[in-house]
């Protein structure tokens, strides 16, 4: 019976009530995250955590396309960055109200995901990776040189409005946004749709032979991925109130991969964890920032080689151990 339940857990609904353990970790996290501003009211710490929340959304959104659907996206920063720029530029230059700017930012990421997704539907493997990389590279070139008059280059676009002033309000706003986004992505990933995406990752021909319109589902994955990255980028713009080329760099694209590898690709929660931990690490130890690209690469290479399943695979390993140990802790 146990095995049966586990086997179906991926597809089943209403599993939650039967497994209170499953909710323990997220609940403890939410509880701690809620009281942090009271127990450690350091503006700097909260700032780091706000960035962590933003990058959690960013990493989880990468995972739905690459981790679940197997469409290797090497240029995820393009969605984050385009949205952030659109928010900043419309808000400061066109003076559109912030909420409208944010809508336009997210919409632009959505549209970009269609524009990148459509040509990518016919591509597989390295061609897809090169295409996603190229799109993000073009965006970087535009922002860093060709369209500097609009993007402000290194100086960036300054003076973006913010929804709420203050670190603590932004902390809670980002926390709520992150929890909602990760919850939605996780629910999608655990649903029938998620199972279909996994099937496409495993074998596209076999998925077609099962009657799956793989083109439609891959496009859906692109849309979800790009849109959530756009949400993260829009929030970033209104929180930082300045947008520079940092938001479209190769480094930011690589971070999505590094975050996800650390946490465990294809699990949503894993990449979210990876983003949280690594962001705190980098922002907390500022001197590390100089070695960021190097460290990302080291992480990518070493996790691919030694722990391809990331931290989440360690958890699974522990669980299996527990079960094999005669089910002492079994309920």
């Amino acid at each position: 019976m146990r095995g049966m339940r586990q086997g179906m857990g991926q597809v089943g609904q209403g599993m939650g009530l039967m497994q209170p353990k499953k909710f323990a970790v997220p609940l403890v996290f939410v509880a701690i995250a809620t009281i942090i501003p009271f127990i450690a009211p350091s503006v700097y710490l909260l700032h780091v955590l706000i960035l962590a929340h933003i990058f959690v959304i960013y990493a989880a959104s990468w995972d739905i396309l690459t981790g679940y659907t197997g469409q290797l996206n090497l240029g995820h920063a393009m969605f984050f960055g385009l949205s952030a720029y659109v928010v900043a530029i419309t808000n400061t230059m066109l003076k559109t109200p912030l909420f409208l700017s944010v809508l336009m930012g997210v919409a632009s990421a959505f549209i970009l995901s269609v524009a990148v997704g459509l040509p990518c539907l016919r591509l597989r493997g390295p061609y897809l990776a090169i295409t996603t990389f190229s799109f993000s590279w073009v965006l970087f070139l535009l922002a860093s040189s060709a369209m500097i008059w609009l993007s402000g280059g290194e100086e960036g676009v300054r003076g973006v409005k913010t929804f709420i002033v203050g670190t603590i309000p932004n902390y809670y706003l980002s926390l709520v946004l992150m929890l909602i986004s990760v919850y939605i992505l996780y629910r999608i990933a655990s649903s029938e749709t998620g199972l279909i995406l996994k099937a496409i990752k495993e074998d596209e021909d076999a998925a077609m032979a099962c009657g799956i319109d793989t083109t439609r589902y891959k496009l859906l994955a692109f849309l979800m991925s790009g849109t959530f990255a756009g949400i993260a980028g829009a929030f970033y713009a209104q929180y930082m109130r300045i947008v520079t080329v940092d938001v479209v760099t190769l480094e930011l694209s690589a971070s999505a991969i590094a975050f996800s590898l650390v946490g465990g690709i294809g699990t949503i929660i894993g990449p979210a964890m990876g983003a949280y931990i690594l962001t705190i690490l980098f922002e907390g130890f500022a001197w590390l920032a100089d070695y960021r690209v190097l460290i990302y690469n080291l992480i990518i290479v070493s996790f691919v080689l030694f722990l391809p399943g990331g931290l989440m695979s360690l958890r699974d390993l522990l669980r299996r151990r527990e079960e094999e140990g005669g089910g002492v802790g079994g309920a």
């Binding site: 086997g7 199972l195 495993e202 074998d203 076999a206």
Partner: peptide, 13 residues
């Protein structure tokens, strides 16, 4: 086969 999925999931898809 969808290698990483269970036999059941393979058929459920």
């Amino acid at each position: 086969p969808f290698k990483k999925l269970t036999v059941m999931e393979n058929v459920i898809i």
